[in-house]
Simulated assay, not measured.
Amino acid sequence: MTAKVPTNIITGFLGVGKTTSILNLLRTKPSDEKWAVLVNEFGEIGIDGAMMSEQGALIKEVPGGCMCCTAGVPMSVGINALLRQKPDRLLIEPTGLGHPKQVIATLTSEQYLPYVDLKATIALVDPRNLRNEKYISNQNFNDQLGSAEVIIGNKVDECDVDDIDAFNDWVTDQSPSKIFHKLVSRGQLPLEILDIERLVPEQVDARDAHHHHHAEMEPQFELDPKQPYVRRENQGQGYFSCGWLFGAEFAFGFDELFSLFSDLKAERIKAVVNTDRGCYAFNVSQGVVSVNEMSLEGFESRIELIDSQLMPWQQLEDILVKLAGINR
């Protein structure tokens, strides 16, 4: 490689719209540029990468926990694989439960200094969460915002005046001041923020990794041809996740699946599913179900739920298996 690759970390808590924002950036990128995206998800079933693959980006997924745990071998393997393809830009989306300082420490280490030009870290926040004790008392939530030079208040179309005031007050109170902040809706990030230079704060020792029991060397897996589906669970940082991967030969009833996701009380639901109407991406945050049609064909259906409470996974699995028309 003859030039460093401009790189941005795009962070933010669960359900804030990171994936939607990256999809919008990919749609508006210069047509002559090749971008790469490293996606890290708390759950064991990779879903965000499936949504991004339609935009022609180079995708590498690191599922199975927060990136502070996977900032070792899996993260390095993923970054190296993407850099070998000589992208014009690299975007990194840590899980909504991740610690961005540890990712920054890895990217600014001697290993990547010749290859990565780390730009400003961008943190998305739902302004409504800045008035919610559940979020403002969460250390990860605060770490993500504290590590970023650029703050984007997303979902402004769903906010009221008090939410906007809370966002503006929060930005005003920050020391050191943030380089840039903006209120947007539906993840419409201005492309130019990717070129904002980062501040160089006190050094973060990459050896001071934050470890969890769920960290694994290579958590990725494939569905065995003889298996109709597989289930994987994860837990850590006060959250539980459960995900399913269903064979491409199974199709779910769209209406039934939409009703199921609408009724579930999980804090976060993501899915890319083959239905009787075609392939669709489902995204559930704060009880709102959004749906986007996808052009994927022959794709394995992926469903992931995250909640701060342990949910009746087996009961839910029985429902999904029935909706998929699988006989056990």
Rank of each mutant, 00 (worst) to 15 (best):
T20E: 12
I22E: 11
S31D: 10
K34F: 00
L38S: 00
L38V: 04
V39G: 11
F42R: 03
G43S: 12
I45K: 10
I45W: 06
D48S: 15
M52Q: 07
S53R: 12
E54Q: 10
E54L: 08
P63K: 05
G65E: 11
M67T: 07
T70R: 11
D88F: 00
D88I: 00
D88P: 00
T95V: 01
L97I: 10
I104K: 14
E110N: 05
V116H: 05
V125G: 05
N140S: 13
Q144D: 12
A148R: 10
K155H: 05
D160W: 02
D165V: 05
S185W: 07
R186T: 09
I193L: 10
Q203T: 11
V204I: 15
D205N: 14
D208G: 09
M217L: 13
M217Y: 10
E222R: 13
L223T: 08
Y229Q: 02
R232G: 11
E233A: 04
Q235L: 14
S241D: 08
E249I: 07
A251L: 13
E256K: 15
K265H: 13
E267D: 15
R268I: 04
A271R: 09
T275N: 12
T275D: 08
Y280I: 03
F282H: 07
V284Y: 15
V289D: 02
V291G: 00
F299E: 09
F299K: 06
L310E: 14
L310P: 09
P312Y: 01
Q315W: 08
G325D: 12
